[in-house]
Write a protein that binds this DNA or RNA. Structure first.
Length: 219
DNA sequence: ACCCAGGTGGCCC
DNA sequence: GGGCCACATGGG
């Protein structure tokens, strides 16, 4: 029976400590969390680069931008009109709740943070939890497409809701930011390594006899 | 010329 | 509560 802690140990033996989110600082993490919705990270990087080149490196500067300008800068990340609205809505809320300070907003209890983030149109559970873990540094398990892909192929949580998958991890692990951070990073590496191009069980460190490899594709 | 990518909200039943 | 759809660019 595969447990969250057991899977962690197996992955850690292969990948070690990764400490991962490819962005600099809370502001960029939050922008990236919105821009990466249904979008490859390479396209997000172009958009983040445009913003940095234009000097949009903090909340006040972003909020002062005309929406057309913001749209143009983030265009490479796709669905850019939606995302421009989502960024403005997100940071308007943060500005208000944090009295103009991003750090003050993030430095609050996790439950309050999550409640406020989920109230923003365009911020769902994954975006909220990415912000809580990688920008605020508070312990929540982030469930994304990579996580689902890997777990589905391991036959663990096929078809589970976001909260069900998150609970499966959190109930079997210490409530630790470094563990959640590294776990997510390792799942991404594993998914990139193997799941996309071939069955996870071919040379897979997790377990032998993966049903996917025998043609019993998981739903 | 397709198909996909670190989602989310709206609409329908 | 689940099943579909729009959103839109860039890369295989």
């Amino acid at each position: 029976m595969l447990t969250p802690a057991g899977l962690y140990e197996t992955l850690h033996a292969r990948y070690g400590d990764l400490e991962w989110w490819p962005a600099e600082g809370p502001f960029q993490v939050m922008v990236g969390a919105v821009l990466t919705q249904r979008t490859s990270w390479t396209n997000v990087e172009r958009a983040l680069g445009n913003l940095a080149d234009a000097g949009v490196v903090d909340m006040a500067t972003l909020l002062a931008l005309p929406i057309e300008r913001l749209e143009a800068l983030i265009r490479p990340s796709g669905t850019y009109r939606q995302k421009a609205l989502r960024l403005l809505a997100l940071f308007a809320m943060v500005d208000e709740r944090g009295n103009g300070s991003l750090a003050a907003f993030l430095d609050r209890p996790m439950a309050d943070l999550r409640h406020d983030l989920l109230a923003v149109k365009g911020v769902g559970p994954e975006t909220a939890d990415s912000i809580i873990l990688y920008a605020a540094g508070k312990p929540v398990f982030v469930v994304d497409a990579y996580t689902r892909r890997v777990l589905g192929r391991l036959g663990v949580t096929t078809g589970g809701s976001y909260d069900q998958v998150a609970r499966w991890f959190q109930e079997g692990l210490p409530e630790d930011v470094a563990v959640y951070n590294n776990y997510h990073a390792m799942l991404v590496e594993l998914a990139k390594d193997q799941c996309r191009t071939r069955p996870i069980c071919e040379g897979c460190p997790i377990r032998s006899g993966c049903p996917v490899g025998r043609g019993e594709e998981s739903p």
